[in-house]
Simulated scan of single mutants.
Amino acid sequence: MLVSEIDMITPSSLSECLTQLSKEGRKHRLIAGGTDAVVRMKEGKWRPEIWINIKNLKELRYIEESKDFIHIGPLATHTDITHSPLLQRKADVLVDAAGEVGATQMQKMGTIGGNIGTASPAGDTLPALYVLGALLELTSLKNKRIVPIQEFIIGPGRTVLKENEMITKILIKPQRQNEKGIFQKLGPRKAQSISIVNVAISLTMDQDRKCVEGKIAFGSVAPTIIRARKCESMLTLGPLNDELIQNIAKIAWKEVMPISDGRATAAYRRDMASALLERGLYRLIRRWENQ
């Protein structure tokens, strides 16, 4: 099928888009920034009968704060995220991750909703959203439901999204004043390639610089993003000194479940997962000491 043989619909409102999604009988797929879609089409994948172009639905492009949550529209670009003062203050790990999604042009075009919907194990914003406990609002013409991101993604490229649904909101809890995060990525070329391994870390510290809660999520080392629960449990065992940080990094080697592919071997990914976690923890401690 040639690109010219695929129909394109451009709805002028969210309700019009949802009406199109509710129609049965033809295979459709949403497109916004198109940074993933173009690649998949070149690979011979993602060949729907109808593309629904939602790029201009301004009602889905926003970053706002309510009493309990930060609300992010699925059409917020990675550049919107990196430039948001609100997210810089209250979701620094997501800002870090969005700044590592491809080159500058890709960050301007690509959207957070697209990164989530693609459900790639190597998606750079996904580990950050996991440690932030993101909730996704999924909307159809007649219903809405809220799904935690870890329940939304069920395998490589696989989600629980129904044919008549779309992501209409991402909800995250704002970081507390004593909470800081960081994102680390290993790729063949810095900030312009698919991650070989990535990791998001969030630490909540007390007045004595002791960790009282920590969250760690790895990408590109399993069929989906994984939370490193054993590593997380070790973060609160004592002061994050050299010995404890290095012991935590060693445990990461056992928690990840990578495969070998054209970009890296499983053994290399395990080693790099440990190294990235160790480096990220040291960088976070320095941030605390320098604030």
Rank of each mutant, 00 (worst) to 15 (best):
V3R: 15
E5W: 06
I6Q: 01
S12D: 14
S15T: 15
S15Q: 15
S15A: 15
E16S: 11
L21R: 03
L21Y: 01
S22W: 09
K23F: 14
K23V: 15
E24P: 10
E24R: 15
E24G: 12
G33Q: 08
D36W: 11
D36V: 08
R40K: 14
K42L: 13
I50W: 13
I50M: 10
I54Y: 06
K58Q: 15
D68T: 12
D68K: 12
H78N: 12
D80A: 05
P85R: 10
L86P: 02
A91Q: 06
V95Q: 09
D96P: 03
D96F: 09
A97Y: 06
E100D: 13
G102N: 02
T104V: 14
S120L: 09
S120V: 05
A122K: 00
L126E: 06
P127M: 02
L129G: 05
S140T: 06
I146N: 02
Q150L: 13
F152W: 03
I153F: 04
I153V: 02
G157T: 07
R158Q: 12
T159G: 04
L161S: 06
E165V: 01
K169R: 15
K169N: 15
I170G: 02
P174T: 00
Q175T: 12
E179Y: 07
G181Y: 04
I182Y: 09
K185R: 11
K185P: 10
K190F: 11
S193N: 14
V197I: 05
N198A: 08
A200Q: 08
Q207D: 15
R209P: 09
V212C: 10
A222T: 06
P223M: 01
P223Q: 04
T224S: 05
I225K: 03
A228K: 08
K230H: 13
K230S: 15
L237K: 14
L244E: 06
L244T: 02
N247T: 10
W253P: 12
V256E: 03
I259Y: 05
I259V: 12
S260R: 11
D261T: 01
D261F: 08
D271H: 13
M272N: 02
A275K: 13
R279S: 12
L281N: 03
Y282M: 12
W288R: 10
